[in-house]
Design a protein around this nucleic acid. Structure first.
Lengths: 105, 105
DNA sequence: ACAGACCAGTTTGTATTGCAAACTGGTCTA
DNA sequence: TAGACCAGTTTGCAATACAAACTGGTCTGT
């Protein structure tokens, strides 16, 4: 080792957005980003996450302002849907850019 | 949304090696991978991680079998160094491959 | 009508984590 | 030889990820 400073790609890794860095949330947000609106049930079955787990990760994303939660009824059954926000989309893009920039060949 | 199955890239994300997924450890392991042997002090100053933090992350990496810890003395002062193991190198490569394969364009 | 199976989603309890402050065991200096 | 200093570990704590247990409601069979 010759240099005494961490190269910038590694510095970037240390500063990654922890809300998005959690795999479950990265997947949730990515799915939300790929559709207008996504239902709870859909996320549950596709991701294989448990309801509780899914619920709390979504709360985190909501708190961070990365998704909007939409509560509605289909017939008489409650249906919860999610929509990525602008902030969420930006954060997601920034996250991928950071990763992309740090990947070794 | 039309499909009911999570695409394989997202599945990969959910299965990332959590030992390596932690940014601090990813950086430590990457530095170790770029040199024959790396000293504690060097990691401390380059990464900016606190001693305690660094120490416990390295313990994790050692437990996982990803680094070897080498204790020695320089004059009379203890010097601890780290060396990535084969398993560590493989895990790191696998991690980057997983990430690389999951990145959106 | 109503008991209980079922459903969508939340809350709670717990084990694990990441972190820095406090500590250990030692060397060096005045 | 007291105490400043150094390399690294342990401890204590706040924040997490997770699933089991729960809530509030609808539907089914009798």
């Amino acid at each position: 080792m010759t240099t005494e400073t961490l190269n910038p790609e590694m510095q970037t890794i240390l500063e990654l957005d922890r809300v998005i860095h959690e795999p479950a949330r990265l997947v949730i947000l990515t799915v939300c980003n790929s559709a207008e609106e996504v239902e709870f049930k859909f996320l549950e079955t596709t991701t294989g996450l448990s309801k509780g787990n899914l619920s709390s990760h979504i709360s985190k994303l909501e708190q961070a302002g990365y998704v909007e939660v939409i509560k509605a009824f289909r017939k008489k059954i409650p249906v919860t849907s999610f929509k990525i926000t602008n902030a969420g989309r930006e954060a997601l893009i920034a996250y991928w850019n950071a990763i992309r920039g740090s990947i070794p060949n």
